[in-house]
């Protein structure tokens, strides 16, 4: 404001020159209003209130107090379930990765020029990725019954969606040179894939598989909540019996394993790329 006043106080030639207009504020104000409306509506819909949070906080502090110290002896009981969790993640990721390879090849527009084949596959791939993993697990539990098997299937489908998409996008950016050279010497499509596509894509693919594995370990740790095997089942058991110190052991154990696997996978991925 003060700068403006100064300008108008000094009558000079400069003030008569056309000055650039500042950007319109209207758009920003409207966007802000819409966001505020959305927030207010959401707060009403979810019955959020600070007072409830403040009255609830002591409960939560009590809960956290009861969680400490964690019961370390509970480790022995949940190690088996933890191993099962990791196993589910490994098997699910691997199966998903294997199924993702043909799907990605079908989706990549530079390798598969048949449009009526690639578009439906892409559509299905996008559809798969909209369904959250826990929801898939709940569905598979309804189909196959309780146990790690539905969890593995859910992770397989989830991995298929993620690895398939990342890989087909990487496939579309590969160098065409080797492909054309091999076509020129009369190779079959299979030979072209093995000798000119695979060498270009394998490091990326491995990196995506590792990344998906990281996500799947986290997911597998909670799949048990819907009955799909793994350590998640023990949350319900311990919380149901109000044994919060045991819950704390589970949480800490999961944190340690997940952080370790993340660290290892990140190092491997750095080496790959």
């Amino acid at each position: 404001m003060s700068a403006h006043d100064m300008k108008s106080a000094v009558p000079s030639k400069a003030s008569s020159l056309p000055r650039p207009k500042p950007p319109r504020k209207l758009k920003a104000i409207l966007t802000g209003l819409i966001v505020l409306l959305l927030l207010a509506g959401s707060a009403i819909k979810t019955e959020s209130s600070f007072s409830e949070l403040f009255t609830g906080l002591p409960n939560m502090l009590d809960l956290i107090k009861e969680m400490f110290p964690p019961r370390w002896s509970y480790f022995d009981d949940i190690t088996g379930a933890m191993l099962e969790t990791i196993r589910m993640a490994i098997v699910g990721t691997t199966l998903g990765a294997i199924f993702a390879i043909p799907i990605a090849l079908l989706c990549a527009s530079n390798l598969n020029t048949i449009k009526w084949l690639s578009y439906p596959v892409r559509f299905v791939l996008n559809l798969i990725r909209t369904i959250p993993d826990l929801l898939l697990a709940a569905l598979f539990v309804a189909i196959f019954g309780l146990g790690p098997l539905p969890g593995i299937f859910a992770l397989t489908i989830f991995s298929l969606g993620l690895i398939g998409k990342l890989t087909y996008e990487a496939l579309e950016t590969i160098d065409r040179g080797p492909l054309e050279a091999m076509t020129a010497v009369g190779s079959t499509p299979m030979q072209r894939i093995i000798y000119s596509v695979v060498p270009q894509i394998q490091a990326h693919f491995m990196s995506y598989v590792l990344y998906t594995f990281e996500i799947n370990v986290r997911a597998a740790a909670v799949l048990g909540l819907v009955g799909a095997g793994g350590i998640g089942h023990y949350y319900e058991v311990t919380l149901g019996f109000l044994e919060y110190d045991k819950t704390c052991t589970i949480i800490l154990f999961t944190l340690a394993i997940v952080l370790f696997i993340d660290w290892m996978s990140t190092r491997l991925r750095e080496k790959l790329l």
């Binding site: 979810t46 409960n59 939560m60 809960l63 826990l134 740790a221 909670v222 909540l225 919380l239 952080l259």
Partner: peptide, 26 residues
Amino acid sequence: SVIRTFPEIVMAILFIKAVGPGSFAG
């Protein structure tokens, strides 16, 4: 990184204990 690793669904269980079941805990 620790916050990220803590599963949201477990966090929701803890908040349900604090503010009761419902959207607010979510």
